[in-house]
Amino acid sequence: MAGFLARRLLNYVALIVVATSLAYMLAASALNPRSNYEQRTPPPPPAVVDARLDELNLNDETPLFQRYLRWSWGVLRGDFGRTVAGDEVNADLARRAGVSLRLILVGLFVGSIAGVLVGALAAVWQYGVFDRLTTGASFIVLAVPTVVLANILIIGAVWFNDLVGAQIFLVSGETTPGLEGGLPAQLFDRLRHLVLPTLSLSLGLIAVYSRYQRNLMLDVLGADFVRTARAKGLRRRTALTRHALRTALIPAATYFAFTFGALLTGTTFTEKIFGWHGLGERLIDSIFTNDVNTVAAISCLAAFAVLLAALASDLMQAVLDPRVRMG
């Protein structure tokens, strides 16, 4: 067992190293930091530009492999280099990681719980009004890309604010800058900023999870062990939650790992459109500003996050399924 685990972790580390190196090579050869200086007026002398690019390890006249070696030596010591503006990538990303994490965690929490709940209820009332409504709604939501959904939410919120004549939903940023007031006012302000991005992130998750959970639950509802639970005198609610839902959750936990990658991409769009200063926003900006080191660092983080999600789904499966723990 220990050997299996060690091999698996080693494989994960190898995957992260190769994925990050590939991302660095691709970014370093496709992006051109020199063009940032060419657009300035007056254009700085070439020698100054070269010296600056050399200092940042971004000079395209240095062979790619040499740049890669210098970069990977830094990464081995935990330093992802500097941005095109000369700031430390580590400090910049650490500040932004918190913003993204808050958004992802709230979105994931709301999305998975609501999705599982909607799916389970739809299965219990199969072919009822609720089932038909949620099936139709999830089909439509699955056809709307995050970028369109986010914009529809913003348009809807602006329309609603105009209608009631007050700023109920706030569509830009995480907090209102320079807001006076105590802790409750601050929290309320954050909440108003959080509603729309969370919706844009979790509606898709709810649609996916509810479809999946509904089908899993339908399989379980007809199973013998649920009938046995009812027959031995458990109330319907207890039998459904303790026996049926728990069993139906196990495959959904595996599915979690697959949706996590999509969630990361969805967060990127949501942050950019709603003006949250997180990792996703930095990712899109860094490609526009030819920021090679930041692009490589973010792809390393993304690879790490995807594998962490795979590990988490394995663990969740062990918690939910006694057979995995015993065997």
Partner: peptide
């Protein structure tokens, strides 16, 4: 597995030129 781990959006975006 490697392609699953690589962030697709980022790679496609970097290659966009």
């Amino acid at each position: 597995d490697l392609l699953l781990v690589l962030p697709a959006f980022l790679i496609l975006a970097v290659m966009s030129p």
